[in-house]
């Protein structure tokens, strides 16, 4: 139910009819009690927020670190090998990437900004626009900075590398020696894979530790596109589609 504008709510604020804005009334309201959704006192859930508002939406690094720590602990259960571990982390990031692609396109399209003069943002059709979208849009959205480098494999044209010198997931986590192959950045790899798959580019993304002395947490995300994607890429190249 929606409350009348502020005039009414101030007039009746002390009477029992003003159930809308009083936190103390929550328990007496059956539609909210037991719904499993915890509401803040001003009744504004994350769903009430404007999708376009990205400013001041930054979260605490420590709270992410603690949440991610629990996610890693969860993924650690019932695993047989390190690749199993990475697969589980990857699966946790994948749905996030799927949704982030839509959010990115929504925010960069004029429909979101309510000015319908320019053309709406389109999904990337070629590999390079997709990768620059990840590098210059997805990364700033997630980590407030672009990725450090984008490279193509010299031998295999279907393999690209996104390089991150300081991945957020690895900042506070060092893996034990018996699992030194593991990179918890597999979660970010899952996000990237979700974005690529959502855009129609079937691929496998894996995270690899390639620490240097200056950047001990340097991680390479290897994006290996499917043969079908490469075939389409060659066809689009011939037709001159950008």
């Amino acid at each position: 139910m929606s409350m009348p504008p502020s005039a009414a709510s101030t007039t009746y604020s002390n009477s029992s009819y003003s159930e809308g804005f009083r936190p103390s009334m929550h328990s007496s309201n059956p539609s909210f009690a037991g719904a499993g959704l915890r509401l803040p006192s001003n009744r504004k859930t994350i769903y009430d927020r404007n999708l376009n508002r990205s400013r001041n939406a930054e979260l605490s690094r420590a709270s992410f670190a603690f949440l991610f720590m629990e996610m890693v602990t969860h993924a650690q259960r019932k695993i047989k090998s390190v690749s199993d571990f990475e697969k589980k982390l990857n699966e946790q990031g994948y749905p996030l990437g799927m949704k982030l692609l839509d959010l990115l396109l929504y925010r960069s399209s004029p429909a979101g900004s309510a000015t319908s003069t320019s053309t709406p943002a389109v999904r990337p059709l070629r590999i390079l626009p997709l990768l620059t979208l990840i590098n210059n849009k997805l990364y700033p959205l997630l980590f407030s900075r672009p990725a450090d480098s984008l490279e193509q494999d010299t031998q295999d044209a279907s393999k690209y590398m996104i390089i991150d010198n300081t991945p957020l997931t690895n900042t506070y986590i060092s893996v034990p020696k018996e699992m030194n192959q593991l990179s918890v950045a597999a979660f970010i790899a899952g996000i990237i894979e979700g974005v690529c798959d959502g855009a129609g580019f079937q691929c496998k993304v894996s995270a690899h530790n390639q620490g240097t002395d200056v950047w001990p947490n340097r991680t390479v995300f290897l994006v290996a596109f499917d043969e079908s994607v490469m075939e389409r890429e060659r066809e689009l190249e011939r037709q001159g589609v950008k």
Partner: peptide, 16 residues
């Protein structure tokens, strides 16, 4: 904040 360390166990962590 490291999931591979448990409370009151010896600390053997490279990052630390």
């Amino acid at each position: 904040k490291n999931p591979f360390w448990h409370v009151d166990n010896p600390i053997r962590l490279e990052g630390w």
